[in-house]
Computed example of a mutant assay.
Amino acid sequence: MTSTPRVPFVKMHGLGNDFVVLDGRESGVPAVDARLAAALADRHRGIGCDQLVLLEPSATADLRMRIFNADGSEVEACGNATRAVGLLLGRPARIETLGGLIEARPDGGGIAVDMGRPRFGWDEIPLGYAMDTLHLPVGWEELDDPVAVNVGNPHVIFFVPDCDAVDLARLGPLIENDPLFPERVNVNVATIESRAAIRLRVWERGAGLTLACGTGACATAIGAMRRGLVERRVRVTLPGGPLEIAWTDDDRIVMTGPATEAYRGSFDPAAFGLAPAG
C-alpha cells in the first residue's frame, strides 16, 4: 500500500505570535481554505498557531503571502508573519498581500518591513458610517475616544493609563464584532510611557489575545503620532517583546523586530480529510 505524501511546514514566531508556514510555490501543498486553516491552527488536534501562512507565486512581486487566522478567516496583512517570511527567505523581498505590496529585508539582528502608507479615511478603515477617525465619538464601558487606522488591516486604538488593567479578553470580542466595523476590527489598548515608548496589548481579529501583533504595533504608533503623543520613531513593547516603529517623511511605516524559526515538520493531509495534492 502506498503511503500518502506528507506536507512539509515551518513553525515560526515573531515575539511569540506564532505561525505555520506552508510553501505553496512547491508541489504537494494542498489547497488551503478556512476549514483546513482552522484545523491546522488547532493547538489540541492540529499543529497549533495564531495564523497559517501560505506562500504562493506572484506575478507582481517576489512571492504572494496569504494569511489565515486561527478561526479560518483570511486577513489582509500581518506584520509579524511578514518578518517571519523575510527571515525564511534570507534576502530582501517584495511580498504581495491582500493588504497591498510590502517589502521585507534583513536588518541587523532582525527583519525590517516596509508596511506601506497608513490610511485614515472612515471608508478606508472601514467604518459603518462617516466619522472623525482621529477621535471616534464612541465607547465601550471604560474604553472610549479611540483612533482608527488601516495599516493593511483595520485597527482601533484606545490610549489608557494602564493597558494591563483592561479586561481585554472580555471587551475585545465585543468591540471586534460591533456593527460599527463591517469587516470586524483589531482592538488595541495602549499606555504612553514616554515620547519614545508605548506599552501595548492586542485583541487580534479572528485570533484573540496575542503575545504580539505587528500591524497592531504599527497602527498604535501611528495613532499616537497623529495625536502628538510620541515622536515619529517609537518603541512599542507587547507582552512578547519590543518592536521599533518609524513613520518616515515619505509617509511609509517601517517596522523592525525579530523573527524566529522554531522547528520544521510535516503532516499527513489524510489526517485532515484531504486527498493528496496533485
Rank of each mutant, 00 (worst) to 15 (best):
S3G: 05
R6Q: 03
R6F: 04
V7P: 05
V7H: 00
F9K: 03
K11W: 01
K11D: 01
D18L: 07
D18M: 01
F19M: 01
V21W: 01
V21L: 11
D23G: 06
G24H: 01
V29R: 03
R35Y: 03
L36R: 00
R43Q: 13
H44N: 14
G46D: 14
I47S: 03
D50M: 12
V53R: 06
V53P: 03
L54R: 03
P57H: 10
A61H: 00
I67C: 00
A70V: 00
A70F: 07
G72K: 03
E74A: 07
E74Q: 15
A81Y: 08
T82V: 13
T82P: 03
R83M: 08
R83I: 06
A84H: 07
P92H: 09
A93T: 15
R94K: 12
I95R: 04
E103I: 08
R105Y: 07
R105M: 13
P106K: 15
P106T: 15
G108V: 14
G109A: 15
G110N: 13
R117H: 12
R119P: 00
R119T: 01
F120Q: 09
W122C: 11
D123G: 05
D123K: 14
L127D: 13
G128H: 13
G128I: 05
M131S: 14
H135M: 09
H135D: 12
G139E: 07
L143T: 00
P146N: 10
V149A: 12
V149D: 14
V149C: 15
V151R: 11
N153K: 08
N153W: 11
H155I: 01
I157K: 04
F158R: 08
A169Y: 07
G172V: 07
I175Y: 10
N177S: 15
D178L: 04
N186T: 00
V189S: 09
T191W: 13
S194G: 11
L200M: 12
L200W: 04
A207W: 01
L209T: 05
T210V: 13
C213R: 12
G214H: 10
G216P: 10
C218W: 09
C218N: 15
I222P: 02
G223Q: 13
M225P: 09
M225C: 12
R233Q: 13
R235S: 14
P239K: 05
G240R: 11
G240L: 13
G240Q: 10
G241N: 08
I245F: 08
I245E: 06
M255K: 01
G257Y: 06
P258H: 09
A259E: 02
T260A: 14
A270E: 14
A271P: 04
F272C: 03
F272R: 01
G273L: 12
